[in-house]
Computed example of a mutant assay.
Amino acid sequence: MLVLIFGQSIIAANQMRTVLPGQGMQWLEITILSLFVLLFAWVSAGFWTALMGFFQLLRSHDRYAIDSEVGDEPIVAEARTALLVPICNEDVARVFAGVRATLESLRSTGNDRHFDIFILSDTSDPDIAIQETYAWLVMCRDLGAFGQVFYRRRQRRVKRKSGNLDDFCRRWGARYRYMVVLDADSVMSGQCLTRLVQMMEVHTRVGIIQTAPRASGRLNLYARMQQFATRVYGPLFTAGLHFWQLGESHYWGHNAIIRLAPFMQHCILAPLPVRAQCRGDFIP
């Protein structure tokens, strides 16, 4: 892919050079060409990704597809999954509307007994914390979800989000085979969550499966444009990324299913030194 991007960018830069008065020999023109190459390379990467995605979708075959060997097998009782929703001073109504929608979708599949939901709060504002507690109580009462949806607010809010997840893993991680970390505004369908667990059960050496998030419910014009773009072009670029990454994937930090045992064993890293550019505590 790099060869294609660089080759295409060099050809485009050469064409750009011919239209400049000094044929790219002046300092200002060299600066213009340098910026042009950087920006064109970004466009070229998108072009080759979309092109390969188009061919993948056209062929309807992907030898690296992880779901090709997965049927509709029932989930065994031991394959329990925790859905984690780390929050900190968030819009309470939005958070719990998303949790409610996810739980209701799970129940429609008949597989909700294999899932528990943990709302992990690091909220510092006491007024928002009271709203969170009340919203959790109302939701559990309305849906009969006591014992399935749990709310926990940390008193010692250390290490921010990574510390929140670390605390969950230490306290309750051994009870679950998988976990899915959601953003505060994430909503996942029960069908998608069930499929993720089924894929993990079939591919026992896979540690993480990343979904491809899509925007929804946006309000302003720019956000609506982004939402439209993800709906139309999202599958194309996702297929293209899958082609170039040979079945591997980026981890985007949320909406992915993770095998908990190896995660707890290997992925709790020491804090980065203060002098590091990305210093602090984190979980990869």
Results as ranks from 00 to 15, higher is better:
residue 79 A to F: 10
residue 79 A to E: 11
residue 80 R to D: 05
residue 82 A to D: 05
residue 82 A to G: 01
residue 83 L to D: 07
residue 83 L to Q: 08
residue 85 V to D: 02
residue 86 P to Q: 08
residue 87 I to L: 02
residue 88 C to P: 13
residue 90 E to C: 08
residue 91 D to M: 07
residue 91 D to C: 09
residue 92 V to R: 02
residue 93 A to R: 09
residue 95 V to E: 01
residue 99 V to A: 01
residue 99 V to R: 02
residue 100 R to D: 04
residue 101 A to Q: 13
residue 101 A to K: 14
residue 102 T to R: 01
residue 102 T to F: 04
residue 103 L to C: 14
residue 103 L to S: 14
residue 103 L to V: 13
residue 103 L to P: 06
residue 103 L to R: 10
residue 104 E to G: 01
residue 104 E to D: 13
residue 107 R to A: 10
residue 110 G to E: 11
residue 110 G to N: 12
residue 110 G to L: 11
residue 111 N to H: 14
residue 112 D to A: 15
residue 112 D to S: 14
residue 112 D to E: 14
residue 113 R to N: 12
residue 113 R to G: 10
residue 113 R to S: 14
residue 114 H to C: 11
residue 114 H to N: 13
residue 115 F to H: 03
residue 115 F to E: 06
residue 117 I to D: 08
residue 118 F to C: 08
residue 119 I to Q: 05
residue 119 I to P: 00
residue 119 I to L: 02
residue 119 I to W: 06
residue 121 S to M: 00
residue 121 S to Y: 01
residue 122 D to L: 07
residue 122 D to H: 00
residue 125 D to K: 02
residue 126 P to V: 04
residue 126 P to Y: 10
residue 127 D to H: 11
residue 128 I to R: 10
residue 129 A to V: 04
residue 134 Y to R: 14
residue 136 W to L: 09
residue 137 L to M: 15
residue 137 L to A: 14
residue 138 V to I: 05
residue 138 V to M: 01
residue 139 M to Q: 01
residue 139 M to T: 04
residue 139 M to Y: 03
residue 140 C to T: 11
residue 140 C to F: 10
residue 140 C to Y: 09
residue 141 R to N: 10
residue 142 D to T: 03
residue 142 D to S: 04
residue 142 D to R: 04
residue 142 D to W: 00
residue 143 L to D: 03
residue 143 L to C: 03
residue 144 G to K: 06
residue 144 G to V: 03
residue 145 A to K: 00
residue 149 V to K: 01
residue 150 F to Q: 04
residue 151 Y to D: 03
residue 152 R to I: 05
residue 153 R to W: 03
residue 155 Q to V: 14
residue 155 Q to T: 15
residue 155 Q to Y: 15
residue 156 R to Q: 15
residue 156 R to L: 15
residue 157 R to L: 12
residue 157 R to K: 12
residue 157 R to P: 10
residue 158 V to K: 13
residue 158 V to I: 13
residue 159 K to M: 15
residue 159 K to I: 13
residue 163 G to E: 07
residue 163 G to M: 09
residue 164 N to F: 11
residue 165 L to D: 05
residue 167 D to K: 08
residue 169 C to W: 09
residue 170 R to K: 10
residue 170 R to S: 09
residue 172 W to N: 09
residue 173 G to S: 05
residue 174 A to F: 08
residue 174 A to G: 09
residue 175 R to W: 09
